[in-house]
Write a protein that binds this DNA or RNA. Sequence first.
DNA 1: CCGGGCAACTTGTCAATGACTAGATCGCGG
DNA 2: CCGCGATCTAGTCATTGACAAGTTGCCCGG
Lengths: 183, 183
Amino acid sequence: MTTQRPYHHGDLRRAVLDAAVEAITEHGPAGVGLRDLARRVGVSHAGPVHHFKDKAGLLTALAAEGFALLADELGTTASAGGDIVDLGAAYVRFAVEHRAHFEVMFRPDLYHGDDPALVEARDRAGAALADGVADRPDPELASVAAWSLVHGFATLWNTGALSRADREPEALVRAVAGRLFPA
Amino acid sequence: MTTQRPYHHGDLRRAVLDAAVEAITEHGPAGVGLRDLARRVGVSHAGPVHHFKDKAGLLTALAAEGFALLADELGTTASAGGDIVDLGAAYVRFAVEHRAHFEVMFRPDLYHGDDPALVEARDRAGAALADGVADRPDPELASVAAWSLVHGFATLWNTGALSRADREPEALVRAVAGRLFPA
DNA sequence: CCGGGCAACTTGTCAATGACTAGATCGCGG
DNA sequence: CCGCGATCTAGTCATTGACAAGTTGCCCGG
């Protein structure tokens, strides 16, 4: 393996983000260090700084990416004719499959909440959720109820509090959501 | 103010816990340092260590205290004849009034999840919640639904995601929970 | 083709943190 | 009155995030 790394990494930004996802999935958002990520990726300890300014900047980028991903998922299930329960299931699926992103997204004390890219993505995701309950009676309240239910389910599931249930998370949340929003 | 502090603090453990609550309320769990707490309380930088072993130990104590408080709150509303909606409201009230405790409690990567005192308190709180839905049809599912709803509401509220709503959190969650569990 | 400019990356440094060790101080039981 | 253990202090070490300054190599204008 004489492959001497070139001076320029190629796509360090992406590599660091991926390493961060991996590290957060393993040790939680608290256990991530800029220097550790640099080591994982194989660059010097200050390499990532150039792309993210500081630790909060890294997590801001992660959160923004997460909101964008979530908005996309919700958008596709909505345009595929999915109803509110489908949307909720998509929300939970996202939270489980992208746990690292999800955990950072709802920890505003870790990142810069006023970042433009982040704000845009977050609003987009919020709109997708709101659309799903637009045709329900009292949409304001229904929106709060739906979001609370699926968000609570997702966070509880990810912290392991619900894992005694033997069902798959998506099936379980469908059963639960069907109770709140009968067809 | 010639009150020279005595060598022995009196109740350093409690003082550090209180300082931690204050610090977490201000800056979130990430922004808390053992040394910072020691300074706030006015002891040397290694003082707290004696009582909590390490940082995770501190947060373990905080989490255990939180679960105990929550179990007490739920217990009193239940024995006062409260129904499932009252229990949910109590859950949210706890989360809002004891935000610092609540945030640590559901961040298992920050503390020692196998601490005996913590396990006991957590189980007690869980039992109090489960009791509230015992008389509902399909209690297993109802328990998941109720917990998800109020937990999601509480975390979303605390992160500010729901704060556009002009209602008080407790009243709002009552309206939402009443939808899931009609009287 | 080539030279300068600029982004990407490195090396070095600093203050602060968590964890550890050894030692000082105090209070309580015998 | 003594000593012994719990409580707290002081000192140290590796590590971290942030910053400053230097290096490397790509790309664009001439």
